[in-house]
């Protein structure tokens, strides 16, 4: 079970504002965690975690430049840019 304070902290980590629905969110998250709690019913002491369905190893390639410069088209869809940079509110005065 998690409480409202923990939910506020999770929301902060996830960069979401849920203050309007805090009680409801806490309740819903607890319902999902109750479902997840079924996992503890199985003993998995000697089981290797499965991170890839086919146990593939990461494919490597030569360290070569494969991307062309798409900055103009990528920045064309950005909310705010200037001189090839993405603009955000001032962080340091």
């Amino acid at each position: 079970m998690i409480d409202n304070d923990q939910v506020k902290q999770i929301a902060n980590l996830a960069k979401l504002n849920i203050s309007d629905d805090l009680d409801k969110t806490t309740q819903e998250l607890n319902n999902i965690l109750a479902l997840a709690a079924q996992l503890s019913a199985i003993n998995t002491d000697d089981i290797v975690p499965m991170s890839h369905p086919l146990n593939m190893v990461q494919r490597l390639r030569e360290d070569e430049i494969t991307e062309t410069d798409n900055s103009a088209s990528f920045q064309a869809i950005a909310p705010q840019t200037a001189k090839h940079h993405y603009l955000v509110p001032t962080v340091i005065e």
């Binding site: 998995t44 499965m50 991170s51």
Partner: peptide, 24 residues
Amino acid sequence: MIGTYALSAGYYDAYYLKAQKIRH
């Protein structure tokens, strides 16, 4: 939110790692 919680410090083993074992 669920994912952020399950991956946060102290809960990773109990949730994500456990789920990956069950996946196996």
